[in-house]
C-alpha cells in the first residue's frame, strides 16, 4: 500500500483500517468499552479497576466514560466478588470480574469451580451463568511465587468452564467479545508480558471464535502447540530453526477448553512430530493432555518421534531474574528442544 506524504508535515497519514495498531491491553480496553456501550447488562467489577485503572491499566479511562455503576471497584474479597458475579449473571446481568492476578483467583475457586461451572448442569440445563473472569497470568515481571503462576490447566480440568488464553492483540479483542457473548462462564487469561505488545486491531467489534486454534506459522517438519506468550517465543524460535533447516508449524491454541483437537491432529499428521510448549508446570499440565490426546488419536500412527513436552519447572516461580527465566521455557530452550526432536526417530 502506498499513500502520499502529507504536504505540511511529511508524515504518512494514518490509515485506520489497515495499519491501526493497539497494544494487547488497549485491545482489551477497546473490547470492554464496546461491550459496555453495546449492552447495558454488562458491567465490570474488580480490585482497583475504576479509579486506578487496574493493576495493569487494562480498564484505564473506562470509569470516566461509564461511571461507578458500570465500572465497580470491589473490596479485596475475591471469593465474595466471584459469588456476586455469579449471582448477578444468574439474575440477568453480564458481569466481567477482573482478578488482579490469577494467583488471587485461588481464593475464589469455590465460586468458580463449585458454583459457576456447575450451576447449569446441576439445575438440569434450566439456566446459564454468563460471567467472564479475567486474570493476568505468568512470570517475567519479578512477581515471584504468588504473583506469577500459570494455573490455567486447573480450570481447563473443570467441565462447565471455558478457558481462553489469547497470544496477540487481535485475538485479545476478538476472544474477549466472544467470551462476553458466551452464555457460559469463561476464564479469560492474559499473560502479563503481552500487555504492551502491539499488533493490528480493527476498530469495529469482531469475534474470534472460542474453541478454534490458529496456525500461527505453517511448517512441515514439526508441530509446536503453544498458547499466550509461548506462541511468540515459539515463533521466534521457529525463525532460528528455519535457518537451521527445520520448518516448524506453530499452533496457537487460543482456547484450552474446549480444545481444538482437530487442528492439532491435522498438523501432527502433516509434520509427524509434536512438541508442546507451555509455561504452567510440566507435570499434569496442558501438554500432558495434548500428548495423551494425540496418543489416543489416529495421528499417533503418523508420529516419527516421541512427543516432547517443554513445560514449566517443578518449582514455584522464583524471584531472582536468572532463576525466574530458568523456571519457564525461553526461546533458546525451544530451539534446543526442537532440534533434538527433529533428529529423533521412533
Amino acid at each position: 500500500m502506498t499513500a502520499p506524504l502529507s504536504a505540511t508535515t511529511g508524515a504518512l497519514p494514518v490509515d485506520p483500517t489497515a495499519t491501526r495498531e493497539l497494544s494487547f491491553a488497549e485491545a482489551l480496553r477497546e473490547a470492554l468499552g464496546q461491550a459496555l456501550e453495546a449492552d447495558e447488562r454488562v458491567f465490570l467489577m474488580g480490585e482497583d479497576i475504576a479509579i486506578y485503572g487496574g493493576a495493569f491499566q487494562v480498564t484505564l479511562g473506562l470509569l470516566e466514560r461509564f461511571g461507578h455503576d458500570r465500572v465497580m471497584d470491589t473490596p479485596i474479597s475475591e471469593l465474595g466478588s466471584a459469588g456476586v458475579a455469579v449471582g448477578a449473571a444468574l439474575a440477568g446481568s453480564r458481569p466481567i470480574l477482573e482478578f488482579q492476578f490469577q494467583d488471587f483467583a485461588t481464593l475464589a475457586m469455590e465460586q468458580i469451580v463449585n458454583q459457576a461451572a456447575k450451576i447449569r448442569f446441576m439445575f438440569g440445563g434450566k439456566c446459564s451463568v454468563p460471567v467472564v473472569f479475567r486474570a493476568p497470568t505468568g512470570s517475567g515481571t519479578g512477581g515471584a511465587a504468588q504473583h506469577s503462576q500459570s494455573l490455567e490447566a486447573w480450570y481447563a480440568h473443570v467441565p462447565g468452564l471455558k478457558v481462553v488464553q489469547p497470544s496477540n492483540p487481535y485475538d485479545a479483542k476478538g476472544l474477549l467479545l466472544a467470551a462476553l457473548d458466551d452464555p457460559d462462564p469463561v476464564m479469560f487469561f492474559e499473560h502479563k508480558l503481552l500487555y504492551k505488545v502491539k499488533g493490528h486491531v480493527p476498530e469495529a467489534p469482531y469475534r474470534v471464535p472460542i474453541g478454534k486454534a490458529a496456525i500461527a506459522r505453517p511448517g512441515t517438519h514439526l508441530t509446536i502447540v503453544a498458547s499466550a506468550i509461548m506462541v511468540s517465543r515459539s515463533l521466534e524460535a521457529a525463525k532460528e530453526l528455519a535457518e537451521k533447516g527445520i520448518d516448524v508449524e506453530v499452533i496457537d491454541l487460543r482456547t484450552l477448553r474446549p480444545l481444538d483437537t482437530e487442528t492439532i491432529i491435522a498438523s501432527v499428521k502433516k509434520t509427524t512430530r509434536l512438541m508442546c510448549v507451555y509455561e504452567g508446570v510440566k507435570t499434569l499440565g496442558i501438554g500432558a493432555e495434548i500428548s495423551a490426546m494425540i496418543a489416543e488419536s489416529d495421528a499417533f500412527d503418523y508420529l516419527d518421534a516421541p512427543i516432547l513436552r517443554l513445560g514449566g519447572a517443578e518449582s514455584p516461580i522464583p524471584y531472582s531474574p536468572i532463576l525466574e527465566k530458568a523456571a519457564v521455557p525461553q526461546v533458546a530452550d525451544i530451539v534446543a528442544a526442537a532440534e533434538r526432536l527433529a533428529k529423533k526417530r521412533v
Partner: peptide, 20 residues
C-alpha cells in the same frame, strides 16, 4: 436460585442477584 451443597456458597450469589 437453588439449594447449595457448599456451606455459605449461596450467600454471595444472593448478593449478586441483589446487585442485578
Amino acid at each position: 436460585l437453588g439449594a447449595n451443597g457448599i456451606v455459605a456458597g449461596g450467600i454471595p450469589i444472593a448478593v449478586g442477584a441483589a446487585l442485578s
